[in-house]
Simulated assay, not measured.
Amino acid sequence: MIIGDPSRFAVEFELDEHHEREWLLGRFCYWVGGERVGDYESGTTLNVVLFRLTSIVKDSGKREHPELAALPGAELFRRLNAALHGSEPSPDEQRAMDEMWARFYVCPQHVDVFDSWRVFLVDAASTARLVFGRPQGGDTVREVNLTRGEFDRVLREAYERLDQLYERELKTSRS
């Protein structure tokens, strides 16, 4: 199932035929600018994805930051990645904590299929900048401009559909 427009932003997931009830074994990824982001073929547990998406969905509409939004894409990615995920101290660490920059990180954390990816979303007045890449692989940073709220709408729909699957399987396992 694909929700959204893969040439802009979409979420793709599918449930395995033998999905182990509420564990929801399956596959999950994002599509950003026509590129698959996440190791879809490896598979994952969709119930964990659902739980990890909760905080991203809750941050919907809270990702505006004019100063960060004005940075070039590679610099935006570098600053957010260094402050949130860097192994070296970053001059932005304290500011990132004070201003809650974690809200800009829109990969489900601790989900194996996204281990090598970083995806950040920063809203401006009428647009949203989605910057992504693999910092360990030396990939170049890519960027897709979305309408403000576009990412949040797609992600919320995917979240709701995953939640319906999870609730259905919980009911089945209790029967």
Score class of each variant (00 low, 15 high):
residue 78 R to F: 09
residue 138 G to K: 00
residue 89 P to M: 12
residue 73 G to Y: 00
residue 142 R to G: 12
residue 96 A to N: 04
residue 49 V to R: 02
residue 104 F to K: 07
residue 51 F to N: 05
residue 58 K to H: 12
residue 70 A to W: 08
residue 124 A to M: 07
residue 81 N to F: 03
residue 124 A to T: 00
residue 37 V to N: 05
residue 124 A to F: 08
residue 90 S to D: 05
residue 125 A to N: 06
residue 143 E to V: 02
residue 138 G to E: 09
residue 78 R to L: 13
residue 89 P to R: 07
residue 99 E to I: 09
residue 105 Y to C: 13
residue 75 E to R: 02
residue 132 F to Q: 03
residue 49 V to T: 09
residue 48 V to H: 12
residue 40 Y to N: 11
residue 105 Y to V: 09
residue 121 L to G: 00
residue 112 D to C: 15
residue 74 A to E: 06
residue 39 D to P: 09
residue 93 E to F: 12
residue 99 E to C: 11
residue 81 N to D: 14
residue 144 V to Y: 06
residue 44 T to G: 13
residue 80 L to M: 08
residue 112 D to I: 15
residue 58 K to I: 00
residue 53 L to V: 10
residue 61 G to D: 07
residue 35 E to F: 08
residue 139 D to K: 01
residue 44 T to L: 13
residue 91 P to V: 09
residue 103 R to G: 09
residue 98 D to C: 09
residue 116 S to V: 15
residue 92 D to C: 05
residue 97 M to V: 14
residue 102 A to P: 00
residue 123 D to T: 10
residue 77 F to R: 01
residue 59 D to W: 06
residue 133 G to V: 05
residue 104 F to V: 00
residue 67 E to A: 08
residue 66 P to E: 08
residue 97 M to G: 10
residue 49 V to K: 04
residue 49 V to Q: 01
residue 100 M to N: 04
residue 88 E to C: 11
residue 75 E to P: 02
residue 44 T to F: 11
residue 131 V to P: 03
residue 140 T to Y: 01
residue 136 Q to D: 10
residue 135 P to K: 11
residue 108 P to S: 06
residue 135 P to W: 08
residue 38 G to T: 11
residue 50 L to K: 03
residue 49 V to I: 15
residue 50 L to T: 01
residue 95 R to D: 05
residue 39 D to Y: 14
residue 78 R to V: 11
residue 122 V to K: 02
residue 56 I to G: 03
residue 127 T to A: 12
residue 64 E to R: 07
residue 65 H to I: 12
residue 125 A to R: 12
residue 46 L to T: 10
residue 144 V to W: 03
residue 41 E to L: 14
residue 42 S to C: 09
residue 109 Q to L: 14
residue 108 P to N: 08
residue 144 V to E: 09
residue 110 H to Y: 14
residue 135 P to Q: 13
residue 81 N to Q: 09
residue 106 V to D: 04
residue 68 L to Q: 04
residue 108 P to M: 06
residue 95 R to N: 03
residue 74 A to K: 00
residue 111 V to C: 10
residue 101 W to M: 08
residue 67 E to S: 08
residue 85 H to D: 15
residue 111 V to Q: 00
residue 92 D to A: 12
residue 55 S to L: 05
residue 68 L to M: 06
residue 91 P to W: 11
residue 82 A to Q: 05
residue 113 V to P: 04
residue 81 N to Y: 03
residue 35 E to H: 03
residue 78 R to Q: 04
residue 121 L to C: 03
residue 99 E to W: 01
residue 114 F to N: 00
residue 51 F to R: 14
residue 89 P to L: 13
residue 54 T to V: 11
residue 73 G to D: 05
residue 83 A to N: 03
residue 81 N to R: 00
residue 81 N to M: 06
residue 81 N to S: 15
